[in-house]
Amino acid sequence: MKLISPGALSRFGMLGINARNLDFIGRYNQREQYPLVDNKLKTKMIAQEHQLAVPALRFSLTQQHDVEATIQQLDTMSGFAMKPAKGSGGRGIWVITDRRDGKFVKSSGIVVDHDDLRRHMSNTLAGLYSLGGGADSVIIEDLIQLDPRFDGLSVEGIPDIRVIVFKGYPVMAMLRLATHQSDGKANLHQGAVGVGLTLEEGHYANAVQNGHPIQEHPDTQKPLNQIAIPEWPTILYLAAQCFEVTGLGYLGTDIVIDRDRGPVLLELNARPGLAIQLANNCGLLPRLRHIEGLRETPRRDAADRVHYSIEKLSKL
């Protein structure tokens, strides 16, 4: 087993789980604000109130007897995404991209029928995917259309951009690419590819899969070092605004780029993981400490904070 010395990690500015929990999540995130981000339905509502772009909600259901009516409605749609409102880590998300012989085709290519959908919805309602197993609700929203500029970069799923926002300042970002191994999900610990992005331009900085550096997408062999995210300032601005929306000091924002609508906020996370440091080959601590030491008078608005991050943080 290969080990790195704690001293080297510390010089590198790596943030560990214990320090994240105590010094950042524990200190800057208030518990009463967690439900806002742990429940996707609430996140969506409050984001819409603040005029942030989110995928359009088609249906939401909380009761078992709503399932039948919803199934009939779904029969008229060609594609949609079905999610548990309180799910975490991409669990329980079904993305239907197509119809075949009246059945539904998932993004992974698997065909499911009405019974499968019905069962999946009642499992979700019973809390199979929710944190702690409590009752849950199902939300069904419009499909995100893949931006052609990401062709060949993500398999069986849409790539999304994770931006860590600390006290409203974007501090680090990565692009997450689904792979066959990750089963179309964008979670790094399930085998998705993490591409670290430079804060000033949103260009490739480094890439890892399963914690190890890679050069090209493992399924499509497309080189990763050409990646440049379009509409980068808009994405950072969208991420920075989430601070005002939720009041959470240490926040992970997941943003996707829709072919037609541009950057759209997918979900928020009050306990964002640490793999982003591996993807960027860079520790979070120097940037977090820099922001912690800032004296903010007067308070900067989101646009100013994005500007500051691009100017200062990327040099750290």
């Binding site: 080990l3 590198f12 560990g16 320090a19 190890h212 080959n281």
Partner: peptide, 15 residues
């Protein structure tokens, strides 16, 4: 707030 033993392994590719 220091590193866990497993993190020393997890972040080892960084070296």
């Amino acid at each position: 707030t220091g590193y866990k033993l497993f993190e020393l392994h997890r972040f080892a590719p960084l070296r």
